[in-house]
C-alpha cells in the first residue's frame, strides 16, 4: 500500500499533465467537412473500419471498455470526444499523437469520413454539415495531368501539374503534393509534402543512397494530399532515381551451413582426404594379407 499510493499519484499526475496538453488542431483544419452526407451505408463502412483499426484501444463505443493506457484513449461515444468538430476528429485520426498512431497511410480520406459518420451515430444531437460545394475535382471538367522529371545533377524530381480541359489548360496552383517511392509493403514518403507554385511546379529532393533495381530504377509516385478535392489523381513513373543495387543471393557464399555443393573448400578437402586415407588403409591391409597368403603358399610348396 505504501508503494501503491506514490505510484498511483505519479500515474495520476502524469495522466493529468499529458491530458492537460491540449491536442490543438490548426484553425484551418477545424472546419473541414465531409464531402458526402453520412447515411447508413457510410456508418456501416465506418463500423467495419472502426473494428479493424480502432477497437483494440478504444473499445466498443458507449461501453466504456477502452484500454487503460496513459494517456487514456477514451470512449469515442463520450461527450469529450463528440465535442470535437468533424474537422478536428479528422485531423486527429490523420496525424495521431503519442501512442495514438497516425492513420495517414492506413486510411484514405473518405474512409476516415466514414469512420466519423459511424462515431457520430452515438451522438443524438449531431447534425451533419456537409461541404457546400461537392465537387469531385477542384477543376471541374478538366483532367489533371502530372509530369515527373528526374534531374540527376542535383538529385531532385520536378513535378508539373496542369488541369487540361477542352477549352483551356491551367496550372494547378497551391496544391499540396507528396512524392513517394514504392517499396515491397508500402509507399516510402520522400521529402516533406510541398505545395505547387504559381506555374504548377513543385520540386522534391530524393534522398541519397535509396536502392533501386540493378539499373537504379525506382517506381516514383506523385499524389495530391487533399484527396477530397483532387480525387485519386496522381502519377506513377519509373525513374532512374535510385542507387543501382547488386545484392547477391544470401546462399551464394560458401559456408558450413550451406548445401554440400556450397560447403567451404577446406571441409570438402578434409572430408575427401579422410575418405581417401581410410580407404587407402583398408587397401593396404588387404594387400598385406595377400602378401602373407602368397608367402604361406610358397613356404608350404617348399616344405613339400
Amino acid at each position: 500500500m505504501r508503494k501503491l499510493i506514490p505510484a498511483l499519484t505519479a500515474i495520476l499526475l502524469l495522466g493529468t499533465r499529458l491530458s492537460a496538453q491540449d491536442w490543438t488542431v490548426p484553425d484551418d483544419r477545424k472546419g473541414r467537412l465531409s464531402t458526402f452526407a453520412f447515411d447508413d451505408e457510410t456508418r456501416k463502412t465506418g463500423q467495419k473500419l472502426y473494428t479493424a483499426n480502432c477497437k483494440s484501444c478504444h473499445g466498443i463505443p458507449g461501453e466504456d471498455n477502452w484500454l487503460r493506457l496513459v494517456p487514456p484513449p477514451g470512449d469515442p461515444a463520450s461527450e469529450k470526444f463528440q465535442k470535437n468538430s468533424d474537422g478536428e476528429m479528422f485531423y486527429k485520426v490523420v496525424t495521431g499523437r503519442g501512442q495514438m498512431p497516425s492513420f495517414r497511410t492506413v486510411l484514405s480520406a473518405n474512409e476516415i469520413w466514414a469512420l466519423i459518420s459511424y462515431l457520430r451515430s452515438y451522438n443524438q444531437g449531431y447534425v451533419q454539415q456537409v461541404m457546400q460545394l461537392i465537387t469531385s475535382s477542384a477543376y471541374p471538367d478538366a483532367e489533371i495531368r502530372i509530369a515527373l522529371a528526374w534531374n540527376s545533377a542535383d538529385s531532385t524530381v520536378d513535378i508539373s501539374a496542369t488541369a487540361v480541359s477542352e477549352k483551356s489548360s491551367v496550372a494547378v496552383t497551391d496544391a499540396e503534393m507528396q512524392l513517394m517511392v514504392q517499396r515491397r509493403f508500402g509507399h516510402l514518403a520522400v521529402d516533406e509534402p510541398r505545395n505547387t507554385d504559381s506555374r504548377g511546379f513543385v520540386r522534391f529532393r530524393m534522398p541519397a543512397g535509396l536502392p533501386g533495381d540493378t539499373a537504379g530504377n525506382v517506381l516514383v509516385m506523385a499524389r495530391f494530399t487533399d484527396e477530397e478535392t483532387f480525387g485519386s489523381a496522381g502519377k506513377d513513373t519509373i525513374l532512374r532515381a535510385g542507387m543501382p543495387s547488386f545484392n547477391e543471393s544470401l546462399v551464394a557464399p560458401r559456408a558450413m551451413w550451406n548445401t554440400a555443393r556450397k560447403a567451404p573448400v577446406w571441409i570438402i578437402l578434409t572430408y575427401l582426404g579422410g575418405v581417401l586415407i581410410a580407404w587407402g588403409f583398408i587397401m593396404l591391409v588387404l594387400l598385406k594379407l595377400r602378401d602373407i597368403f602368397i608367402i604361406g603358399e610358397n613356404s608350404t610348396l617348399n616344405n613339400k
Binding site: 495521431g96 498512431p101 497516425s102 492513420f103 495517414r104 497511410t105 492506413v106 517499396r183 515491397r184 509493403f185 508500402g186 509507399h187 516510402l188 514518403a189
Partner: peptide, 9 residues
C-alpha cells in the same frame, strides 16, 4: 521497412 499496424514505411 513497413510498420504492421500503421502501415507507415
Amino acid at each position: 521497412v513497413t510498420n504492421g499496424t500503421t502501415k507507415e514505411t
